[in-house]
Design a protein around this nucleic acid. Sequence first.
RNA 1: GGCGGCAUAGCCAAGCGGUAAGGCAGAGGUCUGCAAAACCUCUAUACCUCGGUUCAAUUCCGAGUGCCGCCUCCA
Length: 512
Amino acid sequence: MHGNIYIYNTLSLSKELFKPINKDRVLMYVCGITAYDLSHIGHARAYITFDVIYRYLTKLGYKVIYVRNFTDIDDKIIKKANEENSSVEKISSKYIGEYQKDMNALNVLTPSYEPKATETINEMISLTSGLIEKGNAYESNGDVFFRVNSFEGYGKLSHKNIGELIAGSRIPVNEEKENFLDFALWKKSKENEPSWDSPWGKGRPGWHIECSAMSMKFLGESIDIHGGGSDLIFPHHENEIAQSESYTGKKFVNYWIHNGFVNINSEKMSKSLKNFVTVRDALDKFHPEVLRLFFMFTHYRSFIDFSFEGVESARQSLIRLYQAVNLYGEFKLLINKNGITVKDGNPLAAGSVGALAAENIENYKNDFYNSMNDDFNTAKAISVIFDLVRKTNKIINDSMAQNVIILKDLAFLDDAASFIKESLSGIFGLLNEDPGRFIELNLMNLKAANVKADGGVSIGEEEIKKLIDERNLFRKNKEYASADEIRKTLLEKGIILEDTGFGTTYKITGTK
RNA sequence: GGCGGCAUAGCCAAGCGGUAAGGCAGAGGUCUGCAAAACCUCUAUACCUCGGUUCAAUUCCGAGUGCCGCCUCCA
């Protein structure tokens, strides 16, 4: 364990010391998707946010039981099924599948449980019955509504005043309801809609009741963390509290965590504005780790503007991280080949090899964990990693220049490398690719982006290699004019040459 | 109208009482025949405005301005 965690709780609008109900275990529930369409990057941000929280708490040693549900019965799904002449079951299972593909691609870990609403109907019915018995709900012509006035704490999460809500309402009054704020726990089903038998006739569950039912079924009556997008605060989460606490008489959730929204070019992302970006589209243009890093550069509660420039910036940053890992790998290889002398002893003169030997990896670790403990401040935690990267790059460069490294620096380097790996990979879900391959692919993309990816290349690998050999012969003989001529010829065919310490490599950029 | 949030360098973004993290871009340098890549170094003297509290405010309080979200399905 690394210190105390403080979490911003929507209930109190402030950061609170995190104390799980059971000190070794965390019960966490996150509202999942309604399966009727492809997921967009807003979903990606939400689930990456909670993925990092899940990974981090697990890393700290907590046994985290994480539930993330699927809403597979709902008005929108029914509408979509009708439009496509399909069935609710087919539509929901299709989009659940698509969602899982997206989450896997984004390296979002699978929660402990992923229940579907339709698998929890019995629990919802008994919850609803119980609420009627207690006087917190009433049946009205086949529908069952929650009586908002029966729950004293209504509004405590969204910090709303019920009286003002009524005053400001423009919603047409539903005649079946006693009060316009009352919300449906059970809906009488219409013709050709999926339905289940209930004490109130055939019907289907309302939306809010499912999360209470699933949360209680898998995690119990009181849990530690409940999360979701900030748009769910009202009315969804407010309603969950009302029905759950009325039913159990216990506090439903101790810490409410809500992530901020994703905007597109400073505008709210919405279907009516047609500025939706699906996860699919984003992954088409960017590596999943780039997207993860992009989100983690901003605190999870802030809104984030999704722009090409922003993600591009994150991509360059990720390359820098991979370059550092790569540099370290090459350096270790050099040491193994005895290209660098490892010597014991004290740091040499200030400013040269060993001047950094006093660095202690623990300082960086503490900074990192303190940042994460402060309401999961990934942006700050990442800055610590970048500091470390600069430090290790410098040590390696200095050592390579003098072909010598002292033991203390080497030890620091090894510790730093494993810490970078464990934090970025384990907690942030990054750096899971082979560094060399990642760098090559991404630098290639960078160039290709300026030319058009489909540029025709009218030259084979054999010929390229032959020309490279010819050119290197010219270079060896210092006949640079001829050497440059070959480079130019290849460039015209869409091939860029790069002379590295390991020989000449080439990249295909296309010619258009 | 009610509730909540945000305003920090060219761009993005942390910090939130003791004098400005990090990333991208940019500029120098190292390396290289040249180039590319990489690495290093540098890059904020009114932190939206005006008041107030304080020895000290970007950081707290008040007012203002400008954005944004929720109040209706929504991650």
